[in-house]
Simulated scan of single mutants.
Amino acid sequence: MQYSPPPLFKQGAPARVKVTVFALLSIALLVVDARLHALTAVRQVAATVLYPFQMAALMPRDALANMGTYFSSISALQKEVRDLKSQQVAMAQAMQQAQLQMAENAQLRRLMDAREHLPVRSQMSEILYDARDPSTRRVVLDRGTRNGVKLGLPVIDNAGVVGQVTRVFPFTSEVTLLTDKEQAIPVQVLRNGLRSVAYGRGQSGLLDLRFVAPNADIQVGDVLVTSGLDGIYPAGLAVAKVIQVENVAQGAFGRVVCQPLAGIDRHRQLLIVMSDQPLPPRPPAEPAKAAATMASKKNLPRMEPVPPPPLPPQPLAPAVAPAAGAAGAANGARVPARATAGVAAAQVPAAAAVHAPAAGAPVATTGTAARQPAAVAPAPAAANGAPRPKEGN
């Protein structure tokens, strides 16, 4: 039995021969392909067949490269998003500032236009902040006594009256708005000239016309302007517009609700009207005595003249004289005429003596007081020694 090696280890041609053969074969193929271009189709077929294997071999490398690109792109995108958000916020702020400046410029232009049409001098001002008291309607401006601001000056905007200066400091001033409960302004209806007084209603932002007659000619939509009767607000400034008219019972006062025309809660720039209208002089002071007399008479009712009371009837003087003579005769004494005249005068009342006419004046013939002097007339004759008449005669 002959021994032979397994087929795997079976040796063929020598390795050098194999290398030489394959090298020559390769050179021949290269020459043929370069000169004759006969292997182009073979190469394309081989590339097509080997392409899947090539892609499968490159997948690990491509996966690692794509993973690095993925994470780097995510970080870049996040950074870009942050930058865009910050730019968006900055652009939004810039846009808001631009809108605010545009609105402020428009308001300033309107104020300048209104300032040119005002008949009195005015100056621009800006609201710094609202008053601290929440129950009042007040704002603080950036103008004070150093700028010529005084108490009572009106404050307006391009649409109408805003309020009145109620406190003044060196650098600032406090303005009470028109809608404050303690604020009032004399107004008149632009349509018919009806005068009234508008009062603020507080936080509601409206105005009231109080004590209006039920039949007053006021309609919804009427415009109210300043009447100028107070000497503070110039006449003709727009104040409010009537939005509600309530009819009440006969004999009671009506209620009129108005909406201010000015931007009381909207604008920040205002005009302070430097109105220098001279007030009428005060009347001269009365003397102290006359003032006290007038004060004492104010509370007294009006007194009508009271007629004098009628005098009671008195007996005539001749009847008294004989009675006195009889009494003297009974006593055996002569009664002088002067005493008789005194008795007759004693019986005349004091009122008759007051109303008696003077010497030489004509004597009236009517009334008891007029008859008394005639009855006493014989007394002077008796005093001169004239004979006394007797009863028998």
Rank of each mutant, 00 (worst) to 15 (best):
D33S: 11
K289Y: 12
A386M: 03
V175C: 02
P309E: 12
R388V: 05
T40A: 11
M112V: 11
A63Y: 10
R266P: 00
K79F: 05
A291P: 04
N66Q: 14
A90S: 15
N192C: 11
N192Y: 05
D217E: 14
L50D: 11
R35W: 15
A76N: 05
A374M: 08
S204F: 02
A379K: 05
Y233D: 06
A103S: 15
A34T: 11
Q97I: 08
R146F: 08
L270C: 03
V140A: 11
R210I: 10
I127Y: 01
L209M: 08
L141I: 15
P315H: 08
L206V: 06
Y51E: 08
V348T: 12
L118A: 03
A252M: 08
E116I: 01
V348P: 00
F71P: 03
M59P: 00
S227P: 02
K390E: 10
T48Q: 10
S296C: 06
E80C: 01
P307D: 06
Q87S: 11
A213F: 03
D130M: 08
S73H: 01
Q347G: 05
P378T: 03
A92E: 14
V162W: 04
P307T: 04
L151G: 14
R137D: 04
K10S: 08
T176H: 03
L261M: 08
P309T: 07
L77W: 09
A323T: 11
P52D: 09
E182M: 09
H267P: 00
I232E: 03
Q96T: 07
G163Q: 04
V354D: 04
A344M: 10
Q2L: 10
V223T: 13
G236E: 00
E246Y: 07
